[in-house]
Amino acid sequence: MIREVVLRVEGLRKRFGDVQALDGIDFTCRRGELFGLLGPNGAGKTTTIRCICSIIKPDDGSIEVEGVSVASNPLMALKKIGVVLEDGGLYERLTAEENMKLLAQLHGVDGSLIDERIDSICDTLGLDEYRKRQFKKLSKGNKQKILLGQALVIDPPLLILDEPTIGLDVPAQKVIRDLLGKIKKERTILYSTHIMSEAEELCDRLAIIDHGRIVAQGTVAEICRKAGARNLEQAFLKLVGRYA
């Protein structure tokens, strides 16, 4: 069964001065799919995400979230997206719970649903002990969970996670990966990473991006086959032209 497209990105281009950051990016994410965006540093993953989230405007191309154009109706599209940005932060003097509540309110979530959702998220993410603590007083791992929590509290059809495990120690990375494993069944996730093992473990399909272009996309097996490689890491290195 072919599932409905939640995110459609077509011909995305963006230039910053002399640098062509995105040079015709095309991909789609289907409902219930965890789609990985894999690429080396500076490949264009974060720029793609910024365009999808309407933080920056692309020079060309189109983005649709559940059929809503980000260019012509950005506010409606943003209501459908929960985001965890790379190296992102939250308000340090607010508690974990207040941060989640604020983001829910800003997304226009019905007031009667907010507390219930926060309870459920804290339970799922194991945050009950920390929900009343100020964000600045939490460990990096717990901060990352709260960041995930604020994205989930709006119950979005599309969840965008930009390098959510970067800077975390191995146990914390494992916790976040397990959490993603739990929630991926219920929603569409666009997952940006440069960690091969993560992509291999979590992604249903993925796109390898380099120099602002998608060099391959499909399941891990399809990409390995295309590159004539034994594993994703080898395929990645071959496709981005850095395989000795």
């Binding site: 989230c53 933080i55 943003l78 940005l85 992102g88 932060g89 308000y91 983001l103 800003l106 997304h107």
Partner: peptide
């Protein structure tokens, strides 16, 4: 500096 402004720009508010 704290990277919260970027997150704020992703909320559906003009």
């Amino acid at each position: 500096e704290r990277k919260t402004l970027e997150l704020l720009l992703t909320v559906p508010i003009p």
